[in-house]
């Protein structure tokens, strides 16, 4: 993630430790994937209660873009910044492969560089990516266009309800997604389909500054 952000933005991101209580002024906050606290209790649960999250919640309210990938998505859901929860993959196996995603909402600050319903390639690597939300919440996120990415037909790797791969909050400035777009951003990776998310954010930032 650090490498992808550095290459796409032209400078390295500032790294913030989980125990920090303040995040320096920024245009984008990224909670990357990996594992936090050994995924003990529930994936992302303990990290979601770490000191730095208070500051992230303030930025979220202010409308600053926040991107959570994989464990980052789990943390955002556990912190209540995104609806729903992540369950163990329906197949019970850790899945590490490439899937296809449908861009189901190209009208967000994270996806504007894609076409509506465009199908993109994206790698996944997780054990708890089975998105769940109760019927009422699900209806709400579907009706409000909060589902930004869906696993394309027959590629749902985890049993996620409605094939949901990535969602935003109601405000539209917090995106959580299980797939790893940062791992498909240059020829060296075998493609650059994931780059669109970062370029969308750069575009949104430029038009805000203009």
């Amino acid at each position: 993630m650090i490498s992808a952000l550095t290459k796409i933005c032209g400078h390295p991101p500032e790294l913030v430790w989980h125990s920090e209580t303040e995040i320096p002024k920024t245009d984008l906050i990224v909670i990357p994937g990996g594992f936090s606290y050994g995924d003990y209790l529930r994936s992302g649960a303990i990290a979601a209660r770490s000191a730095v999250m208070e500051s992230i919640k303030i930025y979220a309210k202010k409308g600053v873009p926040i991107l959570g990938v994989c464990n980052g998505f789990q943390i955002l859901a556990e912190a209540g910044l995104l609806p729903g929860a992540m369950m163990r993959n329906s197949g019970l196996k850790f899945v590490c492969r490439e899937v296809k995603l449908v861009v189901t909402n190209a009208n967000t600050m994270f996806s504007s560089n894609y076409q509506q319903n465009q199908i993109i390639r994206c790698p996944v690597a997780h054990h708890d990516g089975n998105f769940f939300a109760d019927t009422k919440t699900l209806k709400q996120i579907e009706n409000k266009g909060q589902v930004v990415f869906r696993y394309a037909e027959n590629t749902n790797p985890n049993g996620s309800v409605n094939d949901i791969a990535g969602i935003t909050n109601t405000q539209g400035n917090v995106l959580g997604m299980m797939p790893h777009p940062e791992n498909l951003v240059e020829d060296f990776h075998g493609g650059s389909d994931g780059k669109g998310i970062f370029e969308s954010l750069l575009g949104a930032n430029r038009s805000k500054a203009a």
């Binding site: 209790l41 529930r42 649960a45 303990i46 209660r49 369950m87 769940f132």
Partner: peptide, 9 residues
């Protein structure tokens, strides 16, 4: 409510 359970699930 705060940590041990995720009341969504």
């Amino acid at each position: 409510a705060k940590l041990l359970s995720n009341t969504v699930i």
